[in-house]
Structures are given as structure tokens and as C-alpha cells.
Simulated scan of single mutants.
Amino acid sequence: MTSMTAWIRPLTAVDTQPWTREEVLGSHCRTAQGMFTEWAAQLGFPDYFGHNWDAFLDCLRGAVDDADHELAVVVHEAGELLADEQPNVLAILLTVLSQAAGGNGTAPGLQLLLDDTPDRLSGLAQRMAEAGYPVDLGGGGDASASH
């Protein structure tokens, strides 16, 4: 895993980190608009959230700042994340998340934890690499849930 993506990893069976943990469903995030709606609801974005990338980054930074500990967003059914969008939309999401994680990712305020079956995580890793964010989602523990 590169330092650029050190804040992205598979969800492990047992995590002992003192995270503020929020959970979203990738099946609700197949499009950018669906993702904005799901993340806004689950992370408690304010009512004035504008459902666009700039507003998403602002609200996500607010959620990171408001968290008691490092914020961990768990994406269940992660293989479906932006699956109905063009590849550049995943690149935009990963850039925004990287900005919210904080700079070079060495001490991120945000973790993206991905939960799905190994084959679906592999497909997501392929899409992430094509978007310019190579990440190893195959190692690091049990990344699958009861799918």
C-alpha cells in the first residue's frame, strides 16, 4: 500500500483502534448522488449540504473535525461503490477523501474501511488503481462479511 492510500484498507475482523465509526452501504452509493445522500444521512451532514463535491468535502472535513477520535467510514458492499459511474467519478471521490484524510496520509484523520467479499474487493481495487489510487485490498485480514 502506498502512503498516498495508507488511509484505505479492508475491514478486519477485529479492530481495536479507538475510532469514531460510521457505516454506509455501497449498494446505496452506486451513483454520486446516491453516495451523497447515503453519506449525508449516515454521517449527519447538515441540512444545507449541497450534494456536490465541494460541499461533500466541506461536510466530510467537519465530520473529521467533530469526531472524538479518528473517523473511520466503513463501506459495506464496497464493491458497489460508484459502480454505475464513469471511472473519473471514483477518482474524484478518492481525491476528496484523500484531502479529508489530511495531506500525505501519514497521520490521517480519516480511514476508509472496505467490507465485501474478496472477489468484489479485488474488482474495486482494480477500479481504484485505474483511477490513480493503487491499493492492496487483498491482505490485512478478513475483508469479507457474511455475503
Results as ranks from 00 to 15, higher is better:
Ser3Gly: 10
Thr5Gly: 01
Ala6Ile: 06
Pro10Lys: 09
Leu11Gln: 10
Ala13Tyr: 07
Val14Glu: 12
Asp15Trp: 04
Gln17Met: 08
Pro18Ala: 09
Thr20Phe: 04
Thr20Val: 09
Thr20His: 05
Thr20Asp: 14
Glu22Trp: 07
Glu23Gly: 00
Val24His: 02
Leu25Ile: 05
Gly26Asp: 01
Gly26Lys: 05
Gly26Tyr: 03
Ser27Trp: 06
Cys29Asp: 10
Arg30Ile: 14
Thr31Tyr: 07
Ala32Gln: 15
Gln33Leu: 15
Thr37Phe: 08
Trp39Gly: 00
Ala40Asp: 11
Ala41Glu: 15
Gln42Glu: 14
Gln42Ile: 11
Gly44Trp: 03
Gly44Tyr: 03
Phe45Arg: 05
Pro46Glu: 15
Tyr48Leu: 14
Phe49Asn: 12
His51Thr: 15
His51Arg: 15
Asn52Cys: 12
Asn52Phe: 12
Trp53Val: 07
Trp53Ile: 08
Phe56Asp: 04
Leu57Pro: 01
Asp58Arg: 09
Asp58Ser: 13
Cys59Leu: 01
Gly62Phe: 01
Ala63Cys: 12
Asp65Thr: 07
Asp65Cys: 04
Asp66Cys: 02
His69Gly: 12
His69Tyr: 13
Leu71Phe: 00
Leu71Ile: 03
Ala72Leu: 02
Val73Glu: 03
Val73Thr: 03
Val74Lys: 00
Val74Pro: 02
Val75Thr: 09
His76Ile: 11
Gly79Asp: 03
Ala83Leu: 13
Gln86Arg: 15
Gln86Asn: 14
Asn88Gln: 14
Leu90Gln: 10
Leu90Trp: 10
Ala91Val: 09
Ala91Gly: 12
Ala91Gln: 11
Ile92Leu: 11
Leu93Glu: 08
Leu94Arg: 04
Val96Asn: 03
Ser98Tyr: 00
Ser98Asn: 08
Gln99Gly: 10
Gln99Val: 11
Gly103Ala: 04
Gly103Trp: 00
Gly105Asn: 03
Thr106Glu: 14
Pro108Asp: 01
Gly109Gln: 02
Leu110Ser: 03
Gln111Phe: 05
Leu113Gly: 01
Leu113Met: 13
Asp115Glu: 15
Pro118Thr: 04
Leu121Ala: 03
Leu121Ile: 06
Gln126Lys: 12
Ala129Val: 06
Glu130Arg: 11
Ala131Val: 12
Ala131Gln: 11
Ala131Cys: 14
Val135Cys: 11
Asp136Trp: 02
Leu137Ile: 08
Leu137Tyr: 02
Leu137Cys: 07
Gly138Ala: 13
